[in-house]
Each structure stands twice: as structure tokens, then as C-alpha cells.
Simulated assay, not measured.
Amino acid sequence: MNTFMRWAGFLVVLFIAAPLVIVVPMSFSDARSLQFPPPGYWLGYYRAYFTDMSWLIPTWNSILIATATMILTMLLVVPATFALVRHRFRGKGFADLMMLMPLAVPHIVMAVGYYSYFGQLRLVPTPFGVILAHTCLSVPIAFLVLSANLKGFDRNLERAAQSLGANPARTFIHVTLPILRPGLIISALFAFVQSFDETVVAIFISGRGAETLPRKMFDSIRQEADPVIAVISTLLFAIVLVGIVAPYFISTLRSRAPKPSKPTGAH
């Protein structure tokens, strides 16, 4: 049974990693289109990505839009989560349902609705329209992560701080916020990734002035299968890998660092 589970786990990992194993060598290929195995290797497409403004501008747009989406999402989700988790009021169930609705509706349906509604507001195609649309898609994920952390929060810690004279603001800053910091960081990270990776809504809402990297990649692979797509995929994979490995590497260095010796007292 253990051998079977090991092989099953190995096959699952292989199935997940296979596309990455294929994309990385294709990013170094000298072929004129996406081709595996590569006929030869060079760094020309990496040079093309870092020197071509038609790729760098969408990349910069995606970073700015994802950052703005993350900030706006957290500004909306934090107070909404505290209200829905800690308080009871009429219509709370309906509010919970509306917060999670974008998870149940297909993105193509949401994209059509955003295109029609934002078009009337003249937000198509503008970066602000993309930010608003991406925020609507990011709110449910951030809400689920943060609400799970808040439900497990021990409110006795806040009561103890207030009994010692701390006002609600100081209690939130010095007690609540430090304990919820991991959940807040994860919620913000999910919001950023959701926006940076989103394609369907960006195709409908964004235009030339707000073209995102996923939309650029979609248009490129549909028209000419530019190998620069493999370069971008490899770079994104490398960034994710570094983000996963870095915490373990830092914790290992800290554990191996020599601890300062305690000063000896005078006798």
C-alpha cells in the first residue's frame, strides 16, 4: 500500500511538473515558434523580451494593476470581514452570499457584465476599469482566507488589552494586527496573484492603454506562437520557486546562526 501511494504521488507530481519541464527548455530554443524538443539553444528570446516594449509595457501594466487591485481589495475586505464575522445583523446571510458570488459565476459571464456596465461608465478600456473588475474577482478569495483566520482569533486577548487601558485603535494595532498579519499577507498575496494571472476579464475590459501581460500572451499565442511566451512562463515559474524556497532558506540560516552568548554576571 505504501509503495502504491509513493508511485501515485510520484505520477501526480510528474503530471503537474511536466508542462514546466517542457516550457523551460523551450525558452532557450532558437526555433521561430514554440517547439519541443528545441532544435538548438540560445538566449535571443530572453534578449527580445527585455528589449521589446510591446512586452515590457504589458508586464508593467500587470504589476501596477495587480498592486492597485491588492490594495483596494484589502481596503474593502478587512472591514467587511470584521463586520461579517464578529457581528450579527439583518441580511448577514445575503451579504455572505454576495461576497462569495464571483466564485460561483464563470469569468466569461462576469466579463460580459463588466464590459456592458463599465462601458456605460466609460471605464472601457481604462486601467481603472480593469482594477475594479479584478477587485470584484479578488474579494471572495481574500475574504475566505481572512475570515478563516479571524474566526480562530481569541478575543480574550483584545479584552485583556482594553482592560489594561488600551483604546480600540491601539488594541487593533498592537494586538489584533500582529496576530492576523499572516492571514492579511496571504490574503493580499492571493489578491495580487488573482489579478496578475487573470485573462478573460482583461480581454474584455483592457485596451491598448491597459493591456495586461496575460492578454498579451493570449494574443501572441493565438496569432504567431511567439517563443517569448516560454521566456515569460519560465521567469514567472522562477519567481514562484524563489518565493517558495526563500522562507525555508532564511529559516535554515537563522537556525544555524550562532546564538549570542549570555553575559556572565559579576561575582
Rank of each mutant, 00 (worst) to 15 (best):
Y46L: 03
Y46H: 13
V124G: 03
F15L: 15
L123D: 04
Y41A: 14
I179E: 11
F89M: 07
G40V: 13
A210R: 07
V175Y: 02
G265D: 06
A133E: 02
L164D: 12
T51A: 03
A18R: 10
L84S: 06
F89S: 03
G9L: 13
A191G: 08
L157A: 11
P125L: 05
N167S: 12
D197W: 08
V21I: 15
A104H: 01
L121A: 14
K259H: 02
S255W: 03
G113F: 04
F128R: 02
H87G: 00
W60D: 00
I131D: 03
T126D: 04
A80C: 00
V228P: 04
R86F: 12
M74Y: 11
L103K: 05
I244R: 00
F204H: 09
T171L: 00
I65K: 10
E198G: 05
F118T: 13
L34Q: 00
N149K: 14
F15R: 06
S233T: 07
C136M: 06
G44F: 06
S54Y: 08
L144G: 04
L84W: 13
L84R: 10
R47F: 08
A166V: 00
T199F: 03
T51Q: 10
L241E: 04
L123V: 05
H134P: 07
W55M: 01
V228M: 09
G265C: 09
I57M: 10
M53K: 13
I244Y: 12
V245F: 13
F4V: 15
Y248P: 00
T51L: 07
F50H: 01
P182Q: 10
G243Q: 14
A160I: 01
M110E: 03
V200T: 02
P214A: 01
A83P: 11
A230S: 12
S29W: 07
T252N: 07
A238F: 15
D52P: 06
A18N: 05
A31D: 03
E224Q: 15
I57A: 04
P247R: 07
F237A: 15
R155T: 14
G119T: 07
G209Y: 13
V21D: 02
R159A: 12
T67D: 01
A66R: 09
V139K: 04
S195P: 09
H174A: 09
C136V: 08
L72W: 09
M74K: 12
F204D: 02
R88F: 04
T59R: 07
R155H: 13
T59L: 06
A230D: 02
S255M: 08
P39T: 06
Y117P: 01
F15D: 00
R90I: 08
G183H: 09
Y49D: 00
S163H: 12
A31Q: 07
A202E: 01
R181Q: 14
K151W: 12
L64T: 06
I63D: 07
T252Q: 07
T252S: 14
V24K: 12
A8C: 02
A191D: 05
S147Q: 14
P79T: 06
P178E: 13
Y45D: 03
F190D: 01
A68G: 05
A95P: 06
A83F: 13
N167G: 15
V175W: 00
